[in-house]
Write a protein that binds this DNA or RNA. Structure first.
Lengths: 267, 267
DNA sequence: GAAAGCCATTCGATAATACCGAATCGATTG
DNA sequence: CAATCGATTCGGTATTATCGAATGGCTTTC
């Protein structure tokens, strides 16, 4: 009952807070007018206008040629590009993920936690020449993905956050009961593997393994994405995935792999 | 002399302006402390601290585990992902770029203008299976790239902006004289093609063509990137590039291609 | 074709707000 | 163990963003 994130009373600068909320709103519904934003935030239009114009001056939002609708701006792209460059995990992972994709013939993803969801930090395509959407930057609900289950299993704060709100059903197979999800995490910890079979996208399944940093924490997860027709994953595939996860972790200076579960478990 | 961008006296909200400047600083030098930022902005550390914390609350910046240094945050990645999704140009271009990459065996880029530079909006890799850095989000100086030359040629505001400041020499072959760059644009307009031979990266050359929108404006440019050993590009390659540029423009509803130059040119 | 409604935008007064300087806490170094 | 450097907290003050009302541009409607 007393849990939450925004009633903490943290000292946040009002206008920046509002600006960030506007960006988040534009993230949800792509193109919005001033008064639309104003209504959503319960603020006078003139206030919103000032904020939006300030964001626009820095390219963080842009108004489309049509005139009176605003969208996210190009400066965000450059910022995110630099953000990706600062991530050691990603830099180290890229090489092994490419190898993993080559060996398995499947797409691979690297994910980390962002506000209770999973954000894809790197994506290596299937090596066949087909056209594939870039997935870097996508966010996926934690409870419905292999990546998410792994991250949940080793980060209790993340788990508490993600499982405290109602879980969306993305397909018929999505597990929407928090307790059931939580129960599954036990096994994830035991095997250091997370599975997901058509729980997020129909026809698509995945397996994920944890990636550890220098001080043994799980900072990310790698996944292999496969067509559901290939389910369950072969031992060879799982072996390759574990190899990749171990290699990345080793490159990062992790002392052990698989990681020791955080919660006390009697021998 | 009287030209400029930031002395316009536009009504910008102070704290948002400062927040954006902090993001830009973090974009330049990856990891900075509070006092470092404060020095750069000539502000008291406590002020900067407040702003940074507010940004942090929304995931726009993050402090690294080490403790007292800040970096750009993961929320930017999600925002940029949505930004990319809102771009029709990109959505339409992806398919044709993939075909272009397949036909030529080379990497292709789609670029647009951002504050006088070129930002890469989409990148299709070389179809060989080699590991390649994702280039989406990179920015390239306009004067040293084929993409940039095309964009400059059709957007006089962009040209005025980009060529008013000193031009960086990225390689020995970079053209750093604004007038010389400007002179080259004439030919770009005539051929609807921009060329660049080792002017940005040694061993790499590229050719670009304009992409037009519904109302005939040049909104982006497509480029093929090739090893300099293949220079000059074959007619077949240029043909394929033109085909792609025309197809994308057509999909966008452009009335004509190649675009009519903006400057009055007597028949 | 004219009028009305909608929405973005501008302006100026007000008080709420973010800013700043000084003090505190924590970490790192000699 | 002492001292320095930096991040962080706190509270008073004045700058600053906010808001309401008025304007202007655009599309819609009758």
């Amino acid at each position: 009952m007393h849990g939450g994130r925004d009633d903490e009373g943290e000292p946040v600068i009002q206008s920046i807070d509002r600006a960030a909320k506007i960006l988040t709103l534009l993230q949800g519904s792509r193109r919005m007018g001033i008064s639309e934003l104003a209504a959503a935030l319960d603020l006078p239009p003139s206030t919103v206008h000032g904020i939006v114009k300030s964001l626009q001056a820095h390219g963080l939002v842009a108004q489309q040629p049509s005139g009176n609708r605003y969208v996210l701006g190009p400066a965000l792209l450059k910022l995110s590009s630099v953000y990706l460059d600062t991530l050691d995990v990603r830099a180290r992972a890229m090489r092994w993920m490419h190898e993993l994709s080559s060996r398995t013939g499947l797409a691979t993803r690297l994910g980390a936690e962002l506000f209770g969801e999973v954000i894809v930090i790197h994506h290596d395509r299937r090596p066949d020449g087909t056209e594939q959407m870039p997935e870097t930057g996508l966010t996926i609900p934690s409870h419905a993905s292999a990546l998410g289950k792994v991250l949940l299993a080793y980060d209790s704060a993340h788990a508490a956050d993600a499982l405290s709100r109602p879980l969306a059903a993305l397909t018929a197979d999505t597990v929407t009961d928090p307790e059931q999800v939580r129960a599954g995490l036990e096994q994830v910890r035991r095997e250091a593997l997370g599975f997901e079979n058509e729980e997020a996208v129909i026809g698509e399944s995945s397996v994920a393994a944890p990636v550890c940093s220098e001080d043994g924490d799980v900072v990310a997860a790698v996944a292999v994405v496969m067509p559901s027709t290939d389910w369950p994953p072969s031992d060879a595939l799982i072996g390759a995935l574990r190899d990749a996860a171990r290699s990345i972790s080793r490159d990062l200076g992790a002392p052990t792999w698989p990681p020791r579960p955080p919660a006390p478990a009697r021998a």
